[in-house]
Design a protein around this nucleic acid. Structure first.
Lengths: 348, 348
DNA sequence: TTGTATGCGTTATCAT
DNA sequence: ATGATAACGCATACAA
């Protein structure tokens, strides 16, 4: 029988399978002269396979261009090796920085990240949570600690580790890592007062966490100075353009000679530019206080005082904590407060 | 038999399944009094199910909190409803803007996006391509048109639609949508010459596409003016800080009274700030030409002349084209040139 | 309109 | 060290 001694890759059936892309462990096994199970072992538990067959299997994989099917693997093992990550906005540097680090750590651990935008509303989030869970992720990251009851129920029922980031609470769904926005707002107010400012303009984008900082700042500032800050609030996201407009609005509302507290460095940068365009001196005529300490903030004119939150580290820690929980290892604590720090520069 | 008339949710077996989270179509069907297949139909093809049973099934889903298992669905149907997207960097606004739009369009079509960073090297990309394919995505987006031979082979064998973005070629793997970086560089040079500049400084980040623009600019500028531009190149990504440093380096290298051609608006913004810090007038002493037309570029001082590429639209179009191909519908063309436009502002 | 049987490509369990 | 067999939860083809 000549077919018995024919080179494997000339076998018409095998050739057809390779060509049609229908290469499975079965195919690889047939070529290597072992069963499908052995191929699975060779890939997941190489030590349990003899060196000789291992080599034959690797050759067969090379020959066929076999790519494992994680869909089948996930179904059989009930582990998808997938982590869902829900962020309000992908383009927002704040979250992008965090996600970049999150993803990179996650990848090291051999997981993939399914990323989705939730916007800033609980309804949007709920819809996303639902479809994400249908992928049976092994873990999930949520931004913020306020979620709809339905979201929470689904998450709990799913029975997977959940990590909530960018905020902090004593009763997380599972684990939680972030900082207190109220403390941040208060600390910013203390700082402003300490620097001698007794008038304030608050410029904020439409984000629930920004609002909490804003309100805490306003309350504390009012309490310390007796003067209630003027507010300019945007529904939309923060941009340099809105920062410029905000200063104009603030001046129209009567703001003079004080500090501008911004919900993001992008807005603060806009304030700086508009001040310069108007010939207002910073910090003599108006001082500017940002939030986020973006990479440009040390390089504006004048350099921007800002609140730093180590978001890269946050992403890393979140990833590490989540993977630890997924692998059922012990975690020192369920909530981690990463704190924040006011970086003082020339704008105040 | 009292168990027959007992309320479904009191059935101990069903209750246990619900509690343990092991709710499947089978469970739902049992409660609704139909088979698993009918539940599947109710979800995917509701018209083929009678109104009455549809209602019973929906009630059962509600009762159990059933969430479909797309892993099993993907394996059975051989359609994962997953699209892999490979971008060099998530934090780079250029790609983030595109991805945001890409993802949003994709979601409308009921797909999910598996996003991964490839860095700027082909080797990194190849590794990512391989693990991505193991998820059996229905389509894949790649950034750029230069890929390793191995990547191409895997992609072709996978037999799924591939879209290459941010560049253009006559021989795409499958479909391709972007613009010519060489033409862009040349056009920037023409513009510079037309505006009367005969000295140039090129500031570029370490990105292969940026290099092609840079080289095209340099060649064209040299040809038109007889003066070869000075170059400041960074291996790393573009930041305002590097822009500021780049101007310093450029001046040290002898650059005076000319135009600064930047590979991104972030670098250009840094140039503007450093010029201001040094008391150099823009555009009288030095002119600045950016790339990307970011949302801040109209609001710098002075406003920045920049090359606009409609990247939001690019993301949308890419998503639409990819979904069209996945659904085997005809596509007008395999390559789409979205072009570019120089937006003239005060910095030149 | 509904149900039965089968298979998708793995992993897990148990044998050998 | 290797293999046979049974899940995993769904979709598809076919039957009723």
């Amino acid at each position: 029988m000549s077919s018995v001694s024919a080179p494997k890759h000339n076998d018409p059936i095998i050739a057809a399978e390779i060509k049609s892309g229908a290469v499975t462990m079965e195919t690889v096994g047939r070529i290597a002269g072992v069963s499908q199970v052995t191929v699975s072992r060779a890939l997941n538990d190489p030590e349990k396979v003899s060196a000789k067959t291992l080599q034959r299997i690797q050759d067969a994989i090379e020959l066929t261009g076999y790519v494992p099917n994680m869909v089948a693997g996930a179904l059989a093992s009930r582990r998808s090796k997938l982590i869902a990550a829900l962020v309000p906005s992908i383009t927002n540097v704040i979250y992008a920085d965090m996600m970049q680090n999150f993803i990179n750590v996650i990848r090291e651990s051999d997981y993939h990240v399914l990323m989705a935008e939730t916007g800033f509303s609980q309804d949007e989030e709920q819809a996303v949570v639902s479809t994400m869970l249908s992928r049976r992720p092994d873990g999930i990251l949520l931004t913020g600690i306020h979620h709809s009851a339905s979201s929470k129920r689904m998450l709990l029922r799913a029975g997977i580790p959940v990590i909530e980031v960018w905020d902090i609470t004593e009763s997380p769904i599972d684990i939680c890592i972030g900082f207190s926005h109220i403390k941040t707002g208060e600390e910013m107010a203390h700082y402003a007062v300490r620097k001698g400012y007794d008038k304030a303009l608050i410029v904020s984008a439409g984000d629930e966490r920004a609002f909490r900082r804003k309100n805490a700042f306003s309350r504390q500032f009012t309490q310390s100075t007796g003067n209630t800050p003027i507010e300019v609030v945007y529904e939309a996201s923060a941009t340099i353009e809105r920062g410029r407009n905000a200063l104009t609005s603030g001046l129209e509302k009567g703001f003079r000679n004080g500090i501008v507290m911004c919900s993001s460095d992008l807005l603060a940068h806009g304030i700086l530019i508009e001040a310069q365009a108007r010939g207002l001196r910073v910090p003599e005529d108006i001082a500017v206080l940002g939030f986020g300490n973006q990479d440009f903030s040390a390089f504006t004119l004048p350099a921007l005082t800002s609140v730093q939150v180590d978001r890269s580290h946050l992403g890393q820690q979140a990833a590490e904590a989540l993977v630890t929980r997924i692998e059922n290892k012990p975690l020192p604590s369920n909530t981690i407060d990463i704190g924040f720090e006011i970086i003082e520069r020339a704008s105040t």
